[in-house]
Amino acid sequence: MKTANQPLLSLKGITKHFGSLTAVNGVDLDVCPGEIVVIIGPSGSGKSTLLRSINFLEEIEEGTIVFEGEEIGYVTNKHGRRHLDAPHKICALRSEIGMVFQHFNLFPHMTVLGNVMEGPLTVQKKSLEEARHIALDMLAKVGLSDKRDVYPATLSGGQKQRVAIARALAMRPKLMLFDEPTSALDPELIGEVFDTIRDLGKEGMTMIIVTHQMGFAKEMADRVIFMEKGSFVAQGTPEDFFANQMEHERIKSFLNRIL
């Protein structure tokens, strides 16, 4: 059942352990359509794990993921044990949620155009012509039309990340997840990637972004969340967050360290 004010994504009690370590500890999060959520926090606080759980790259032990009003991804078998849904269903879900990685993970053996075409071509089984058309659109969107025939190895970090964004967008996702998209970049290349993300935001794309760039969080986010030791410690609008939550001792020391 889809209603107007219904969140696009709703997480409830997400919990994930790595051995004895609790990476994510009962996190709840609602993301409305068009909302940009920025998650910050020290390394090892579970930000990436949470993001990867949404895309089923990590299998969570507890909690539910509701996407467009439907609980997704996990089924309970007749012995009462919970496990990931059938692979083809997981694949279908993933194709609706785009993800961008810290290390780009472009396919080095394909040209830039090939990278962006791959999803529509292989996953959505679109024709070569159609896939090419979509890919060229997406490359134009990230401003890399002129690089379409080169291999990723010749691109700068910033260009690689923009291609990775185009590759994710080519699947026409309803939600985009960014896992530290600028952490592997030289400082002078960060701007071009954020410009691309900013443009996406203006088009109304729903996004969850894990980043250490506070400037970007201040400027872009509808909501900033501070995560530590697997839990949300504080959240609010950027104005509220950076004005008021600064009093929070942990946040203050974290921000002082990275700013």
């Binding site: 790259l57 194709s95 990685f101 290390h103 993970n105 472009l106 396919f107 996953v123």
Partner: peptide, 11 residues
């Protein structure tokens, strides 16, 4: 990361 990226676009 290559396998993850491939999975992330739904492969």
């Amino acid at each position: 990361g290559q396998m993850e990226a491939a999975k992330a676009i739904g492969m």
